[in-house]
């Protein structure tokens, strides 16, 4: 099965680096696993190294780390109140991991971990799992008041409660598909336009001249994708904060 050099899907292929098979289940260390590890190491490494001096007056890099920290802390505090700060390490980890993962995908030949639905869905399930576990442990049965909005007359509840339940269930789906879809679509579009440059470039002088157009497009899209990469990590983190708010204050 040959693949063309302009195949836009090829970049999402997964292949074994260290094949591991347990009971017929493929648990290999793949290129995806490698880039997850790289994202985690870069994320943690950056934050760790830049804050090593613990300067009272921050260096330029230290202030970047502090900025990320305070940005996430403000986001969480605004959405979930100061009680939400107990989830700060979780939200901060998610945000950093996704941000670095998204941005790593922007490098040519690098694998985009967040363009894998299973990755984003697992993280979304993790978020919802935290909301459920913490919400029920903290509020017990009262947590389910989340599905019963205040001030809605009895008969309407028959209609409203299923909608609320459905909306809760769809959260992990929308959360994961939003990130996955953005990253996937962006990278495919980028690759398609970059492929045009290549294809046109092989068509002689006129082709080379025309290839300038998709090249400009590719450059513009790269800029856009950088924005999307940062934005989607932020969106994921913000929604996580909002969902955590439900766990903290279920009766809204």
């Amino acid at each position: 099965m040959e693949h063309s050099p302009t195949d836009p899907i090829h970049q999402f292929n997964i292949y074994h680096l260290i094949p591991i098979d347990i009971g017929g289940l493929d648990l290999s260390f793949t290129n995806a696993s490698l880039f997850m590890a790289i994202a985690a190491i870069i994320g943690a490494g950056f934050l760790y190294m830049t804050t090593g001096s613990r300067g009272l007056v921050p260096t330029r890099m230290q202030s970047v780390s502090e900025m990320f920290y305070e940005f996430t802390a403000d986001m969480l505090r605004e959405s979930a109140g100061s009680g939400g700060m107990r989830f700060f390490p979780f939200v901060f980890s998610l945000f950093c991991f996704l941000l670095v993962g998204n941005l790593l995908g922007m490098f040519p030949y690098f694998f985009t971990i967040t363009a894998q639905i299973v990755v984003t869905f697992t993280l979304a399930i993790l978020v919802i799992g935290v909301v459920l576990v913490y919400g029920i442990r903290q509020h017990g049965i009262k947590f389910f008041k989340l599905f019963v909005p205040d001030g809605v007359p009895g008969p309407l509840l028959i209609l409203v409660v299923p909608i609320e339940v459905l909306s809760f269930i769809s959260r992990p789906i929308s959360l994961s598909i939003r990130l996955f879809g953005n990253m996937l679509a962006g990278h495919i579009t980028l690759k398609v336009f970059a492929g045009f440059v290549f294809s046109l470039g092989t068509l002689g002088a006129l082709g080379v001249a025309t290839a300038v157009l998709p090249l400009i497009m590719t450059v513009a899209l790269t800029a856009l994708e950088l924005l999307v990469a940062a934005l989607q990590a932020y969106v994921f983190a913000v929604l996580t904060c909002l969902y955590l708010n439900d766990a903290l204050h279920p009766s809204h």
């Binding site: 997964i14 591991i20 289940l25 493929d26 648990l27 290999s28 260390f29 793949t30 995806a32 696993s33 997850m36 590890a37 994202a39 985690a40 994320g43 943690a44 934050l47 760790y48 390490p89 979780f90 901060f92 980890s93 950093c96 991991f97 971990i113 894998q116 299973v118 990755v119 697992t122 993280l123 993790l126």
Partner: peptide, 18 residues
């Protein structure tokens, strides 16, 4: 399975460190 496993391992370690 491999994706989920490695994501879980990596993210758990990352979270711990963070």
């Amino acid at each position: 399975p491999s994706q989920i496993l490695w994501l879980a391992i990596v993210f758990a370690l990352f979270y711990q460190f963070m």
